[in-house]
Structure formats: structure tokens, C-alpha cells
Design a protein around this nucleic acid. Structure first.
Lengths: 347, 347
DNA sequence: CCCTGGCACTCGGAAAGCCGGAGTGCTAAG
DNA sequence: CTTAGCACTCCGGCTTTCCGAGTGCCAGGG
């Protein structure tokens, strides 16, 4: 870790803040004026020279001002940034969203929209991979003589449904009974485990299985084999906000970025990393390790249900973003979401 | 309607096809070469001059070639275009999607992705506004003593669920009974009508209502009052495909367009229009009436369930798109979707 | 020793000028 | 009516010029 004189730190902070605000390389003169520094441009130039040696800033070319490097941003967020609570205006618009009492599921999905609206960047939310969550119960509901609605409820309150066409008609009471037997047999496992058990049970095809359980297993298998189970558990919104940033508006990069949003693969991996530790995490530029996120930063924070981390919320924007604002927004959103989910479930 | 000499029509067709393929203004010389015309560039210039007077083509500037106007595209699709069935390759990739037996709901949502993949443009799907579809049945499922999962099934196979927290605990049989009574009372109405009835029933608060129905009405009301009911019934995918087109890559237009995709309002109105009549509809450029879709065309086709139009599939791309290909893809997709939905439901 | 004013230097970006090419419109001849 | 020829236009790309912003360095002053 580099150590700078207090003056150099002050300067760097002012420079980065200025650059975040304006998006233009900032020169010694403007920096003196803007930050109200008590020394001259020449001095500033000397200090800048040092900062450049440390790799914290660089000049795009000889006679432009300086812009922060990724390392500069990193130093900035690590040691120069005092994260304040969100502006009251932001705060209220976030809280409003959580006041409306909704389904956990709907709430989670809406959070990405919330984040994008408040930060004017792209909001992302990663929900638990379906296969990983706990199985709570299954129910069969006859829609007609040939169609049965299978409802799968997970322990975290997600509901999955699918219509299947069983081989023979079942009466309502048969279905009821089948569900009861099934729930008894598979209570407490994770969805992935249930799926595995189902495959086993079908393969064994044992005669000793109750007839009714057999039916249930066959029908349930159709749900657990469905692609809904392996769906990428990621919501993105407000991608179009990123079009407003000139540093991203140039064709190829933008293209890559948007494809990353659609493919979701990379983002998912990134958010997985962020789930291992608590609190806000920040990936600046290449730190994320994904080419598509080259000149972007990602700010994430995990949220939890009953003390257990289950997902992540976050924001994607250009490296030149208002880290203090974004960090506080992401942080408070994750907290409120955790609260809303943990509050809503027990009781 | 303008009437052109066969030669002029041939020329126009060749010009538009060339322009769609290359995206560059096309001049007399290249046109002669490319289309293998048996007359000279000078003649072509004369004819082009006529076409320009008719407003079918225009030159971006004096010494560029000609590009089609919106009117030109319109004439092209109306009278010059022979819509062929999709290329076999497209066809198989479409059919593959429909082979996988899925939920109607999942199928519908996946179609926008399908369209965008096949056409390399943005795919859109409009599903019935929730409030308009017919009510089929409601069910209550106890998750815990304080949480009840309400499952709402519509006649077209959509399933809506929501967790509510009733005032007092209900036993499974009470819930069962409540659902039965409720289903009997509201069978056959549209969701909007059900909602209205519920509000009425709650307002009247009449003593003569069965106790169990009262409970059902109260719980159901929480579902019908939820925002899921009024959700914009529109799916968009593959927006990022549009970044590949140079004519759209210029900042502000693109921005508008993407905002239209997020806001959904305009697209929804447009698709509403397309639902009134059968078959493929094409909105070229300003024809749609929405500024955001300025240099875009929209190709749509309604799909039906049991002979009733219930939604629309479509594609959004630059006015310079391969209309023949896109039209046939949209058409066949709508047909297959109708087939899959109508096939799956009865039985 | 550090700060500061001064100065020469560099470089990018805008403006201006200069082709070359592609394409047109017109005209006159076949 | 078609076509070859020709003059003309205008865009795009290229170079040139110029200006301004900003730097680095140096020498003088606190």
C-alpha cells in the first residue's frame, strides 16, 4: 500500500471527485480553482507527477489533464471515501419501495428496478439458484381431467408452478393424498436433492413403492426436470441508463457489455464471489476479471434471510461513478431487503 | 396508390434489396451490375428520377446513391414482396423450440427470445392483459399457520400466486372449502369482473354472506388488488442485437428506443393495434406513430387460443430489415404458438 | 528545502483547404 | 426511347494549420 502525504491525498481526492463529476481530464489550474487549494498550479503539478509515478493517475496524452487509474479509484474507495448514509431523497424513494407489502418474490425482482432508478445506472439482483434452496412443499391441483397444476413452494417463499399432463386422470382426493405422501417423503431436502432422489426412485422403479407415491414421483419429476429449475437467477434493469455515459457510448464495448447482461454468465460468477463475504464489495474495472466489464465498476452487497446470505444486489456503471452515493444506496438497499425478507417470513 | 411500369418496379425492388443487404446508398452503376439489368446506368438514372418524384426513394445528398423512403418500403412490402416460407434452417430452430413441451406461460415468454435469436433483432411478445382473461379457479394452500399461498389460474393457463397473511389461521379443510365456494361463486367471469365483484362484496359487507365465503373473498381480494394484476404484459428480448446496426448506433435515437423498451407503454399501444386484425402487420418507421420508433420497423402477428386472438408476437428492427425473412419468421412463429397453445389446453 | 512564477514545449481537436471518387443531370446522337 | 459523354456536385478522407490547454523544468524567493 502506498502512503501519501496528507496533501497528496487531499489532492487526489479532489481530482477524482472532480473527474467523477465532469468526466473530463482535470488539469492543475482547474483543480486549484475548483478545490480551493491554497497552493499554486505549479505545486499541484509536482504532486500530480508523484501521483502518476504511484500509478494512481495518468494523463491520456501529454497535454491533457489527469484522470484516475483503476488503482487510483481503488485507493480512493479504500482510504479516501467516507461513506455517508444516502441523501434523504434517495432514502425515501428506497424506503417507499419497501413499505408496499408484497410477495418476497416480487419484492426481490423489483429491487433491481429500484436500484437502477435511484442510481441512474444498471441494477442487478441475484436470487438464490433454485436448485440450492430448500424444498418446502408440493401440491397438485386438478385443472381439468388431463391437466394438473403442480405447485412447488420453497423454504424461502418462492413459488414455482407448472402444468403437466398426467398419463391418466386423477381425482382431487388422489392428488391431495399424493401430495401429502410426497411431502412427507421429501421434507427438508434441497431442491437439487429432491431431484436426485426422484431420478433414483424412477430408476429403481421398485414395486414396494406405494402406488400413490409412484404417481406423485412421476408427476413431480416433470417439474423438477424442467428448465425452470436451472434458470439463471439474475435480474438486470436499467441497462439503458448506461447509454448516457460517453465513455461507454462507443459501439464495441457497449455491445460486449449488453451481451454480458443478456448472457448473464459472467455477472453470475461475479455475484457468486460477492456472496462469500458480508458487506459492500466493489469491483473496479478489470478487477472483476471479465473483459465485458472493462471500463465498468460493479458495487454489490449480499442480502440475507434469517441471518443466512442468500443473494446479492448491486449496481453496474462506468468506473467513473459516484462511489459514495452508489455504495450507500446499495448498502442500505441490501439491508432493507434483508429486513423485509426476514421480517416477512416467520411469524 | 402509384402505378409503375414493370421495369420501374423491378428496379425499385432490386434497389431496396440491395440497400437492405448493404446499408449503403445505391447508385445507378452498381445497381446495373448487381441486379444484372439489361439497360444502361443512364436509363436507370432516368427511372430513378421518376421513383424519386413518386417519393419512393431519395438521395441523402447530391452525389450519393438512392435510399428507399418509408413510402418506398411500404410499396415494397405491399406489392413487390413475395413472402416465402422461412429458410429451412430458421424453420427448424423455430420448431425445435416448440417441440419441447412446456408450460404455456414459459413457452410464451421464451418466444421473444426465440424471435430475437432467429432474426437477430429485438423480439417482443404481448400476452393478454391479466385483467382481461377469464377466471378459471382459485385455490388456497396453507404454508404455515399465518401464511397462505393463493393460487389463481386463468382460463388461458396462466398461473398467478401470492402469499398472504390472513387475520386468523385457517385449517386446510377450511381453505379447501373456501376455495370451492369461491370458485362456484365467480366461475366464468373475467379477472376484472371478479375484482369488481370482490370490491362490491366487501363494501356491502352483508351478513347474509356465508362466513366461509367472506373469508375467501377477503383473501382473494388481496390477490386481485395486487399490482401483478396490472403488470405490463410485454416481454422484450435481444435489444442488444440492435446495437449492431450503424443507422441506430447514434446516441440519442438509441437512447429513446431503449427507453421505449423499458417503459413499454408505446409498444403496448402499438401491439394493441395489431391485435384487432389477423395476420402479419407491418409498421414502417413513422407509421407506428411513436417518435422512439422513428427509424425502426415493427413486424407483428397475433396469436390465438382456440380461435380467439389473445396476444401478439413481433420483432423490432431498423427500417432496413429483411422484411421477407422477418415476416415469414414472425408469421410462422405466431402460427406455431397458436397451435401449441390451442393444442395443449383442451383434451 | 519547498514553493512559485515563468517559459518553452507538446499534443489534441477544431477549422480550413485540398483532392479523388462516386454519382448525378443534362444533352446530343443513335 | 435509349445511351454515351460530359460537366457538375458533394461527401469523405487527408493534410495542414492554428489555437489552447496543460505539462515539465528551471531559476528565483521565501
Amino acid at each position: 500500500m502506498v502512503s501519501l502525504t496528507p496533501r497528496a491525498e487531499r489532492l487526489l481526492k479532489a481530482l477524482i471527485e472532480q473527474y467523477i463529476a465532469e468526466g473530463q481530464p482535470v488539469g492543475s489550474r482547474t483543480l486549484v480553482k475548483q478545490a480551493g487549494l491554497e497552493f499554486s498550479p505549479a505545486t499541484v503539478r509536482n504532486i500530480m507527477s508523484d501521483l502518476e509515478e504511484f500509478g494512481l493517475i495518468r494523463s491520456p496524452h501529454t497535454s491533457a489533464g489527469r484522470v484516475p487509474t483503476e488503482r487510483g479509484y481503488r485507493f480512493f474507495v479504500n482510504t479516501l471515501l467516507a461513506v455517508k448514509p444516502p441523501k434523504t431523497w434517495d432514502m425515501t424513494s428506497i424506503e417507499d419501495r419497501f413499505l408496499a407489502d408484497q410477495d418476497p418474490q416480487q419484492l426481490i425482482e423489483s429491487v433491481s428496478g429500484l436500484l437502477s432508478q435511484v442510481t441512474k445506472l444498471a441494477g442487478i439482483v441475484r436470487v438464490p439458484r433454485r436448485a440450492d434452496v430448500g424444498f418446502l412443499q408440493l401440491d397438485f391441483l386438478a385443472l381439468s381431467s388431463t391437466r394438473v397444476l403442480v405447485i412447488l413452494v420453497t423454504q424461502d417463499g418462492q413459488v414455482l408452478n407448472r402444468v403437466i399432463h398426467p398419463k391418466r386422470p386423477y381425482s382431487a382426493s388422489e392428488l391431495q393424498q399424493a401430495a401429502n405422501v410426497f411431502n412427507g417423503a421429501y421434507a427438508g431436502l434441497s431442491l437439487a436433492e429432491v431431484r436426485r432422489s426422484l431420478v433414483d426412485a424412477l430408476r429403481r422403479d421398485s414395486e414396494d413403492m406405494q402406488q400413490i407415491l409412484r404417481s406423485a414421483v412421476e408427476m413431480a419429476h416433470q417439474v423438477f426436470a424442467g428448465e425452470a429449475m436451472s434458470e439463471a437467477p439474475l435480474f438486470v434493469s436499467g441497462e439503458s441508463n448506461l447509454l448516457a455515459f460517453p465513455e461507454l457510448s462507443n459501439t464495441e464495448k457497449l455491445r460486449r457489455l449488453f451481451e454480458a447482461f443478456t448472457a448473464k454468465q459472467d455477472l453470475l460468477h461475479l455475484l457468486d464471489q460477492s456472496m462469500v463475504s458480508q458487506g459492500v464489495q466493489i469491483f473496479i474495472g478489470a478487477e472483476s476479471g471479465y473483459e465485458a466489464l472493462e471500463s465498468c465498476s460493479v458495487v454489490t452487497a449480499p442480502y440475507e434471510v434469517d441471518g443466512q446470505i442468500v443473494g446479492t444486489v448491486g449496481v453496474v456503471g462506468p468506473t467513473r461513478m459516484s462511489y459514495d452515493r452508489v455504495i450507500s444506496v446499495v448498502d442500505v438497499t441490501a439491508r432493507l431487503l434483508s429486513g423485509a425478507l426476514s421480517h416477512g417470513l416467520p411469524g
